[in-house]
Design a protein around this nucleic acid. Structure first.
Length: 1018
RNA sequence: GCGGAUGUGGUGAAAUUGGUAGACACGCUAGACUUAGGAUCUAGUGCCGAGAGGUGUGCGGGUUCGAGUCCCUCCAUCCGCACCA
């Protein structure tokens, strides 16, 4: 009976769905295992073969864990809010909800064909109100929380208010933007507005004016990681800086924990490094430099510039200060003498985009302000400069310049002839700054003679004792802007009363996205929700009502922004544990049981976005006691991208010229000739069929154009040339067919097999190629060129999983994607090898020796020693390999096993049954079918147990010892495994094979590694 | 510039703790069978060489009886960060 994958796979897809084979429940005594794929955004383009790579790997692992007896949670859903659907809506007027639904249906259809073991009853969609109700709830929880540094966790804002009422804010250790101090008495008489203004500085999500990446074309704000090279990641539109009132997330509060938490995670170093880098921790000190404005008698004791430095040990090397041009004190301190120049410098700096400022490193610019600061230790006066190499957004926006120890300061000082003071013992700083930390400090009062490490501590101590600063840790991580001026996102559960944000109680959630007529920003620049006519909050009836009812008494305007893409994806893994819960984001027992994700599979491109924000929200929910773990994703594997293999045809154009006018002559009439010839070519080329040259001839030419001669052309070339000549009526016209301007043209990969072009198909592909002529190989084929590129429609190299499932079956596709190579690695997609995998499954099928009715004719007796050895070798290899996520080598070993069993003509039932279980995570359909045919119809192979490895079957009586001389393997010698190293040595040395290499000499040394190798040193 | 990853046949790759480099496939070559299918089977296939043999894991060096694997230097490709004080 033939292996008919199409009907088998269809049958089992239906059977699994009907029987709820992959449904899991919390209620279980089994140990849990949580396998999750990164949330896909359902794009209109559907899936190509690159997408399922990670899904297949995680599915194989999930199935493997099930066979091992774990209760495996393996869900799938959609990150279904997002810009593309909105862009499409703007263009077509089609509601994003509709396109999103269609795209999801398409995704689902494609996913279903691959045979994944998802529990679809747990599907979630971020854009469904039942889901985003809880996204809104988390937002409110963040709004109602503050970060207590002394407890090092988030706490309820009501605790904070109680503290304010009792003791004011002076002694509260919080992560806050609050600068002024108030007493309990003062707090208690603050107005409601004043109180809220203060609380905004403490809340974990808060309103603030912030500089944002404004994208006018999209009418929205983008996060830093959504901006690539100054244009929007999606769409490539220009982005500018704009000050806007926005919701922000106080992620900075978690900077330290996000950093230290990385140690406990089983992620790649590369991702951890990216996050470490992004958080950007630096230890040092902030130091106050008192100002001296040069005006006699003025009290300057209260005015100072705060700088941040990581090298307080070099403070005696300070010869000037530099402020960022945007620093608020610049205008205050600049003397009248330099006012114009400073204003001009600031103007020029403001014109430069962030990108220009970054790329222009070589051009050193700066402006002296005329103001001077007092060195807090030496009392010396130092000039204060402004320069755009200092960033307003980092540290304090001011640096103490130590030109002897910092290269940028050195460059600046050298450029402007500022003195450089050397404070390093025996180090030359005439050519460059000395930036290493290994020098002894010199000429630095109490720091002289100390090493940097000691001196840093000493300096901080002195700074703190003197009251001129303190040790400080700085983070590069910024608070995250959380507002988007978009339609297709979660609405905020916020309305405004007297301009103050008010939250809506959880029992009235979700606040459902309103209908709008247009998805664009309003004419007066409001976000798209400004177009909604029913978008006001009625506090009396607790519902959304018409805008016309707004009276600012009981009916108030709702927030017009929506949440960013990362809101819904920051907690979705929690929802899968209890997706239908209407009373909580998930029931406590569900979260407590499933906990965090054990294996997370997805791309590395979310390193600073999703993976950081999800960690932040998880830590927050942990702090507030909602979940029992601090990290969302314990182990992560980043699958590599699958690249496309594009195929090319090469078009050449004939060159026509008048015979009586040599095209290469330098005649006086050359201009006229050229024009005549150009006209001739334009006219005649249009009449000619398109001509394509096979790649192998072209390759010869490209490899060595100089020695390429007409002899390399074959008879085809002459035929075409003749054909063209016949087409030209004019007798005075000559023609050449040169290949040096051959144009590569992408050709659809479905027309190419093994680099051979389907000529008839190609002619039908495009009407302009209908009469194409080809310069072919001698065997009459056309060989295409190829290149590895990203998969894209325009390159005609997209391979969809659907086509392959149709042609080879889902099991073959699954095995082949795994067989390609290590999952983490980027690799080109090439269908060439898929036949090999398809053959493997057919060979597996044949092992079962099915008769015409599909009943296997198997041997029910005891398996042979060889059978057992082949099987147990595979059990060991496959379980070892799966434990280290080496999916590709498993497939190879299945092949080896099937090859061996075929050779042994094994039809043993026990052996084949266990083999099926081993293979089932990779090829579930064929495994189920054969499992059933073997008489296990009552159960599914998914309920089987992973076979147990028995070492005994692998024990060898004889070992083929490789015998090396000086490390080079010369011959092999079969010897009894029981022999001692000494005995092995003797037998080998006395063998005739060895004599050949010994040449009568006595070896210097003989090394015998029992069971492994013999090495003879001559 | 800094940090990370990767580099092995014509191709995808394997070699888990230093122990037979190239398993398993693709492709290619030759052959068998055939009602000519993109089927199946057999043999061969890193490179150089007729052969004996030599040589070989990006380059160069080192440690070791033995190195794809460990150490040092350099090169290339990809990714991330980048005036970060």
């Amino acid at each position: 009976m033939e292996y008919n994958f199409n009907s088998i796979e269809q049958k089992w897809r239906k059977r699994w769905a009907d029987n709820n084979t992959y449904k899991v429940s919390t209620d279980s005594n089994k140990e849990k295992f949580y396998v999750l794929d990164m949330f896909p955004y359902p794009s209109g383009a559907g899936l190509h073969v690159g997408h399922p790579l990670g899904y297949i790997a995680s599915d194989v692992y999930a199935r493997y864990k099930r066979l091992q007896g774990f209760n495996v949670l393996h869900p799938m859903g959609y990150d279904s809010f997002g810009l593309p659907a909105e862009q499409y809506a703007i263009q077509t007027g089609q509601h994003p909800e509709l396109t999103t639904k269609e795209n999801i249906a398409r995704y689902r259809d494609q996913l279903d064909k691959i045979g994944f073991s998802y529990d679809w009853s747990r599907e979630v969609r971020t854009s469904s109100p039942e889901y985003y109700k809880w996204t809104q709830w988390i937002f409110i929880e963040l709004f109602n929380s503050w970060y207590d540094k002394s407890a090092d966790k988030a706490r309820s804002i009501t605790d904070l208010i109680a503290l304010f009422e009792k003791e004011g804010n002076a002694s509260i250790q919080a992560v806050t933007d609050q600068e002024t101090v108030f007493t309990a008495a003062e707090w208690n008489v603050f107005s409601k507005e004043e109180k809220e203004a203060v609380l905004q500085n403490y809340r974990l999500t808060y309103l603030a004016d912030s500089w944002v990446n404004w994208c006018p074309a999209l009418g929205t704000v983008l996060a830093n990681d959504e901006v690539v090279n100054g244009v929007s990641e999606r769409g490539g539109h220009p982005v500018e800086q704009k000050l806007m009132r926005q919701w922000s997330m106080r992620i900075k509060a978690y900077a330290e924990r996000l950093l230290t938490g990385l140690d406990s995670l089983d992620w790649t170093d590369s991702i951890k490094d990216i996050q470490t880098n992004w958080i950007g921790k630096s230890k040092g000190a902030s130091v106050f430099f008192p100002l001296w404005r040069g005006i006699e008698g003025e009290d300057t004791s209260k005015t100072h510039i705060e700088v941040f430095t990581t090298r307080p040990d070099t403070i005696f090397g300070v010869t000037f200060l530099v402020l960022a041009p945007e620093h608020p004190l610049v205008d205050v301190i600049t003397t009248t003498e330099y006012a114009d120049k400073v204003a001009e410098y600031k103007r020029v700096a403001s014109l430069k985009s962030e990108r220009d400022r970054q790329s222009d490193v070589k051009n050193i610019t700066g402006q002296i302000t005329g103001a001077k600061a007092i060195h807090p230790f030496t009392g010396a006066e130092v000039d204060i400069w402004i320069a755009d190499y200092v960033l307003a957004s980092y540290g304090t926006g001011a640096v103490m310049a130590v030109p002897c120890g910092d290269q940028r300061d050195w460059d600046f000082a050298t450029h402007f002839n500022i003195p450089i003071k050397n404070i390093f013992q025996d180090k030359d700083i005439s050519k460059a700054a000395y930036t290493e930390k290994d020098a002894l400090i010199a000429a630095s009062d109490f720091l002289t003679g100390l090493e940097a490490k000691v001196a840093i501590e000493k300096a901080i101590e002195a700074i703190e004792n003197k009251g001129i600063g303190k040790g400080k840790t700085n983070y590069r991580l910024r608070d995250a802007v959380f507002s988007r001026q978009r339609y297709w996102g979660e609405p905020f559960p916020i309305y405004y009363k007297n301009g103050l944000p008010q939250t809506i109680a959880v029992e009235h959630l979700p606040i459902v996205l309103p209908e709008v007529e247009k998805y664009l920003p309003t004419e007066d620049g409001q976000p798209p929700l400004g177009n909604a006519t029913v978008w006001a909050w009625d506090t009396a009836n607790n519902k959304v009502v018409e805008n016309s009812k707004i009276d600012h008494q009981t009916v108030f305007p709702l927030e017009l922004n929506t949440m960013p893409g990362w809101a819904g994806s920051s907690w979705y893994f929690l929802r899968y544990t209890d997706p239908l819960n209407t009373n909580a984001f998930a029931a406590k027992d569900a979260v407590d049981y499933w906990k965090n994700v054990d294996l997370y599979m997805g791309g590395a491109e979310h390193a600073t976005g999703h993976l950081l924000y999800a960690r932040f929200w998880t830590k927050f929910l942990y702090d507030r006691g909602y979940i029992p773990f601090e990290e969302p994703f314990q182990k992560m594997i980043n699958q590599g991208m699958i690249l496309g293999r594009s195929s090319f045809v090469y078009r050449i154009k004939p060159l026509f010229y008048y015979t009586n006018e040599d095209p290469y002559s330098l005649d006086k009439k050359i201009d006229i000739d050229i024009k005549k010839n150009v006209d001739l070519n334009m006219e005649l080329t249009r009449q000619m069929p398109p001509i394509f040259i096979t790649y192998s001839i072209l390759k010869k030419y490209l490899n060595d154009p100089y020695s390429f001669s007409d002899n390399n052309f074959n008879i085809e070339h002459k035929r075409i040339l003749k054909l063209i000549k016949e087409n030209v009526q004019n007798q005075n016209v000559s023609v050449e067919l040169s290949i040096n301007d051959a144009t590569p043209i992408h050709v659809d990969i479905s027309l190419v097999d093994n680099d051979k072009l389907d000529l008839e198909g190609f002619k039908k592909w495009r009407s302009e190629y209908a009469n194409a002529e080809f310069i072919l190989e001698n065997d009459g084929t056309y060989i295409c060129g190829h290149e590895v590129e990203k998969m894209s429609k325009s390159k005609y190299n997209v391979q969809t999983p659907d086509e392959l499932v149709e042609k080879y079956g889902a099991d073959t596709l699954r095995c082949y994607e795994m067989f390609l190579g290590p999952v983490e690695q980027a690799k080109p997609w090439d269908t060439k090898g898929i036949n090999g995998v398809s053959n493997f499954l057919r060979k597996l099928w044949r092992l079962f020796n099915l008769d015409e009715n599909g009943s296997p004719r198997l041997d029910e007796g005891e398996p042979s020693k060889d059978n057992l050895k082949s099987l147990h070798k595979t059990i060991k290899k496959v379980s070892d390999d799966l434990e280290r996520f080496s999916f590709n080598t498993c497939v190879s070993n299945f092949m080896i096993c099937v090859n061996e069993l075929s050779e042994q003509k094994c039809t043993n039932k026990q052996i084949l049954e266990q083999l099926l279980v081993l293979v089932s995570p990779y090829a579930p359909h064929i495994a189920e079918e054969l499992w059933e045919k073997m008489g296990n119809g009552a159960t599914s192979v998914t309920q089987a147990s992973f076979p147990t490895f028995n070492e005994a079957y692998l024990v060898e009586d004889n070992i083929e010892y490789p015998v090396s001389f000086n490390g080079k393997m010369r011959f092999k010698m079969p010897l009894a495994a029981a022999l001692s190293p000494k005995e092995v040595e003797e037998i080998v040395l006395n063998s005739p094979e060895a004599a050949k290499y010994l040449e009568g000499k006595t070896p210097k040394k003989v090394i015998v590694v029992p069971g492994k190798i013999v090495n003879i040193v001559m």
